[in-house]
Simulated assay, not measured.
Amino acid sequence: PGFPDINPVLFFDTQDRLWLVWYTVIAHQWDTSLLMYRISKNYLRPKGAPIWSWQNVILVKPGDSAERGIQPNDRFVKSVERQIKEYANYLENTIEDEEIRRQSLAKWHEWGKSMLSKAKGEDMIRKGLLYDDKGGYIEQDMGYPYFQRMGWQTKNKAVIIGKRLILPLYSDGFDFSLMAITDDDGETWQFSEPLVGPGNIQPSIAIKSDGTLVAYMRDNGPPPKRLHISTSKDNGMTWSPVRDSDIPNPGSGADIVTLKNGHWALAYNDTEDGRHSLAVSISSDEGKSWSWTRHLERGNKGEISASYPSIIEGHDGTIHVVYSFSFRDSKGETLKTIKHANFNEDWVKEGD
């Protein structure tokens, strides 16, 4: 009591146990978020909520050991540093207009400087030891990994690849994403390299027929406002450079599910500005094209808001979407609720 509990996600593990994962905001700042979870084996009761048999914290440790401070070759720091440089090269080589290119690079360098400072622990400088390659060390002030380990948040469900469960995470402090990975149903966890880009958060994962994972991420960065995208060919440990997709995104959450027939269903705000339109699109070619779209909500900007969708497929093939919805009534007051829609793929293909 007294602490905000945010963005709960539900999913089953390989033992058919029900997981509830969320984050508690310790000091009312996003970068003080702490990942929590509960597990239930008794959730198919005729009445009442699941009986939760276990509750604990997921401790996130994406970098190397740092008992005496973050070392210069820390793998998390090196990955962030490399991806900042790669994205700068991408901007340099793809933006034709000289002035826009200059402004974009200046903004990215400033953004990258902030991300790297946090990765190095420069927000928490304490006495430590700087080790050399021969095992020697010198005493000096060192950064400690508070930002590496705190502030990770949930938004979308986990996916399972064989015995591996992958839980998508993001950080509003870093403004990028990370994957929490367990091969033993949560007994132990490891963490992917970070997915670093301009405000790519709240990842959701689709699965190709060859096992490639595709992460779509909310765009909290500069124009063009598109869902960010990255792929993994090693079950989520490493990821391709984060890039813009062709799918519009106004800086809002989206969610994707891989259907049993191999098609992908994406629930998202299909605008670059505003959450007044919420759509479901179907891809039959693993994201190369989105041939069918139908809207769950569509209204005037400022009058309605439909956002933060979560999408799954039931055992019978029914697609379910839940999302936040608000609207103004006849008195001009804003009313809020959570909506649930269920339909099949053919309904989407019929269009609006």
Rank of each mutant, 00 (worst) to 15 (best):
G274K: 08
L278A: 05
P198K: 00
G236A: 12
S326P: 10
V9G: 04
W22M: 06
R226Q: 08
V280L: 05
P62Y: 11
W152N: 04
G48S: 14
D74F: 08
Q83P: 10
G317R: 10
T258S: 14
I51S: 09
V196A: 00
S232Y: 14
I312W: 06
F343V: 08
E81A: 07
G199K: 05
T188Y: 10
D183H: 07
A265L: 08
T258Q: 12
E139K: 08
K163W: 07
A306K: 01
I58E: 15
P8I: 02
F12W: 13
L20G: 11
G299Y: 05
P194Y: 02
N235K: 14
L129P: 05
Y216W: 15
G236E: 12
P224Q: 03
R75D: 13
E81W: 08
H315F: 14
S326I: 02
L59C: 07
V77H: 05
K288C: 02
P203D: 07
N7R: 07
L213H: 06
S326L: 05
G2K: 13
D244M: 00
G262Y: 10
G121N: 07
I201P: 01
E313C: 05
K107C: 00
T182K: 05
G121Q: 03
K233Y: 13
I39F: 02
R149H: 15
S171R: 00
V257I: 11
A267V: 13
Y43A: 09
M142Y: 13
Y37M: 02
H276S: 11
Y37W: 14
N42D: 15
S104K: 00
S79M: 04
K225G: 00
S65F: 14
E345S: 08
R45G: 11
E98P: 13
F343H: 12
D185K: 01
G236H: 10
L266P: 06
R328P: 02
I100E: 15
Y323K: 04
K339G: 03
L105A: 01
L116I: 04
A119T: 01
L35Y: 05
N342Q: 13
Y216I: 00
E96L: 07
D270E: 12
E110V: 08
E313Q: 15
H228S: 00
L335T: 03
F12D: 09
N200R: 00
D97L: 06
Y323F: 15
D246R: 01
M150G: 04
K78M: 11
P62G: 14
M115N: 03
D346R: 08
K336H: 14
I84R: 00
W111R: 11
G287P: 05
K113P: 07
K85E: 15
M142H: 10
L169A: 04
E345W: 13
Y144P: 03
W108M: 02
K225P: 07
D141T: 06
D132Y: 13
L167P: 10
F3W: 11
S230G: 03
V196H: 04
Y323I: 13
I84V: 11
K41I: 14
R226T: 02
E110D: 07
P248Y: 09
Y23P: 11
T318A: 12
S79G: 10
V280Q: 03
I95Q: 04
F3H: 09
G143V: 08
